[in-house]
């Protein structure tokens, strides 16, 4: 059995869903060790076990920026144990640790994978050009291979394993490569979490102005949905970055995704095209978003959305 190491980060005291997705996949590939980044707790380690980790290395950088010291400590572990595969998510700290680790050990990194297999070589699949093409890649090396996987590529399913032993890892002083986290700011959020919501109502530049986004919020409220956005309106400052869906934002797979005034650029599509049902409202019949839509409305968001909100509010009596 291949040794597979999986990076899992903590958020709100528990492993993120991305980490659990990777553990679920890793079980298929070999014996699973979790690399846990965060404060750690018995509950968190038990969850890692439930999703298939049989051992845990625990890294707690405190208020040091994780990447430098964690990559250094992890590099030593990788060199002494030589796992076949290291799985990370396509997420902030994952990228930082994986990048530094790979540079330290001279390992190649396969990025943005949506699937991974070990059959002799490690091979990965990547959606390129906005998901219109699938590339299969491989690293010709039987040493450790580092793969970064896009969120929501695999379901997260528990197997009910017992609590693994967690080994705390000493973090070295990385001297000139050290950085400190001196503060933290959490953006306020209403409604369900974007990544986990069953319904997402998202808006783009076609809403015309920041006020236009209120229409999206109104429809979302009536549906108990989360709101999302394109990078165009995040960069324009209409909504916070935490709402961005796409290549450089969040990946979502809700039951229903309603795209309002969104053109459907490649970088947006990769973040939402796997939603079960997609509804798009756009005044341009040629808009690329219609190519992924189950229902496309060629029309003006300022006309369709208020009526939709009213109809939904009438049903729920809100």
């Amino acid at each position: 059995m291949a040794d597979v190491w999986v990076f899992c980060q903590e958020a709100d005291g528990a492993p993120t869903s991305l980490g659990l997705e990777l553990l679920t996949k890793a079980r298929e590939l070999g014996t699973v060790t979790a690399l846990y980044l965060g404060a750690g707790s018995d509950g968190a380690f038990a969850t890692l076990g439930e999703y298939g980790a049989t051992a845990v290395y625990h890294f707690d950088p405190g208020d040091e920026l994780a990447s430098g010291p964690v990559a250094a400590a992890l590099a030593d572990l990788v060199q002494s144990h030589r796992p076949r595969l290291l799985l990370f998510g396509q997420a902030y700290d994952d990228r930082d640790v994986a990048g530094r680790l790979a540079a330290r050990l001279g390992l190649s990194v396969l990025s943005n994978a949506v699937d991974v297999a070990i059959d002799g070589a490690v091979t990965t699949r990547h959606e390129i050009f906005g998901g219109s093409q699938i590339a299969t890649a491989t690293v010709e090396d039987d040493g450790p291979v580092v793969v970064l996987v896009r969120p929501k590529s695999f379901p997260a399913e528990p197997v009910g394993g017992g609590t693994p032993t967690a080994t705390p890892v000493d973090l070295p002083d990385v001297g000139a490569a050290a950085a400190r986290v001196t503060g933290s700011h959490v953006e306020e959020r209403e409604g369900p979490q974007l990544e986990d919501a069953a319904v997402v109502v998202a808006g783009g530049r076609g809403l015309g102005s920041p006020d236009g986004f209120e229409l999206v919020e109104r429809v979302a409220k009536a549906l108990g949905a989360a709101t999302g956005a394109t990078r165009a309106i995040v960069d324009a400052g209409w909504v916070p970055y935490a709402k961005q869906v796409g290549q450089t934002g969040k990946t979502v797979k809700p039951d229903v995704y309603i795209a309002c005034g969104i053109s459907g650029a490649m970088q947006h599509l990769v973040g939402m095209k796997d939603s079960k049902t997609i509804i798009a409202i756009n005044k341009d019949p040629e808009a690329p978003i219609f190519s992924v839509a189950d229902l496309g409305i060629v029309g003006d968001v300022h006309k369709v959305l208020p009526k939709l909100a009213e109809a939904l509010e009438a049903r729920t009596g809100s």
Partner: peptide, 12 residues
């Protein structure tokens, strides 16, 4: 430094 929930302040 952008995070999933907002941002951290990081210094070096």
């Amino acid at each position: 430094r952008q995070t999933a929930a907002g941002y951290d302040i990081v210094e070096a």
